[in-house]
Design a protein around this nucleic acid. Sequence first.
DNA 1: CCAACCATGTAAGCTGTTACATGATTGA
DNA 2: TCAATCATGTAACAGCTTACATGGTTGG
Lengths: 180, 180
Amino acid sequence: MSTAVTTLGYALLGLIRAEPRSGYALRMVFETTPMGSYSSSPGSIYPALKSLERQGLIMSEAMGARRKILTITPAGEQVFDVWLRMLVTVEELSRSTGDALLRFAFLHDYPERQVTLDFLTSFESAAMAQVSGLKRFLAGDGADMPLQARLAVLHSFKTIEASAHWASEARKALIKGEML
Amino acid sequence: MSTAVTTLGYALLGLIRAEPRSGYALRMVFETTPMGSYSSSPGSIYPALKSLERQGLIMSEAMGARRKILTITPAGEQVFDVWLRMLVTVEELSRSTGDALLRFAFLHDYPERQVTLDFLTSFESAAMAQVSGLKRFLAGDGADMPLQARLAVLHSFKTIEASAHWASEARKALIKGEML
DNA sequence: CCAACCATGTAAGCTGTTACATGATTGA
DNA sequence: TCAATCATGTAACAGCTTACATGGTTGG
């Protein structure tokens, strides 16, 4: 059992899906692009790839003595697809934005445009719900906190607000881009 | 050896320093305030407290049969103080903002106001350095990326920009608050 | 007296980190 | 040929999560 794929696992799966690669090539992606910011160290990548292979989500084909090219399997495609289409919830966003942003980055070459727009809508409303929660806290329980503690909460407030705004703008940009 | 204190450890140390408490009381803080968002589960708190005690940074005093009140030791004060006065670097901020924000929240009842202002200055310049890096990436290597991948990077850009702006505003608010 | 909550802890398992180890291939 | 880089892996360890276990205290 255990279709337990980590965030790193999905990142690897998505990259392999887009283009079959070696483990080393995958590491280089993490090292040279501001993608999430995953480990890029062999000690995290290779075990994660082995786990994906154990679960039958990728296949490896030896190329020469050492090099191995990794390819996604139909099962892998399906698991990835389910993950990719997940809408953003408040719970997910309050844990961290990393997963959601990763999905967004991978949505680009995949399904119908509407899926991406729905994703962004869910992202925006989840972010706005969090913002409201923080606003309520600052007005309620947090009202008697010292200035500096309030300012610390305000940082979350401001960054999540920027997130929500980004989702709205990204949505507009995609609609406009689609029309052109 | 090993003055290895985790972020959770510093959070606990800071709370205990502000007011001696039981482990349960500490868990309640994490559960009822939007502080960072640490585990709050017994499986993380109690082992972390035990580790702090092993390192001689806190002391526990039994109150009745089960309840234990935790107090910070002079060694703990010193370790906490060193951590609290650390300035924000680009490396720290690019790993995550959590640590830095935690320090900011704890700076409130502690040293001279100037330390806090210096902290915010370092925070702002680290954030702005990151923003410049992303801007460079978007103009350079990232210029030929598909729209959606660019938008994903733009999310980092916008949120970190909001962070930098927050630091600037927080600094102003503290100076103004000090003058009043 | 019994349920709810206070209060502390342990055990198994998973991820990821750092550091180490190895060897092939390529370009100057 | 020799250094750099390609390329894959393992081992030890730290930290957190979930789940389990236990018992004290208090209010209805």
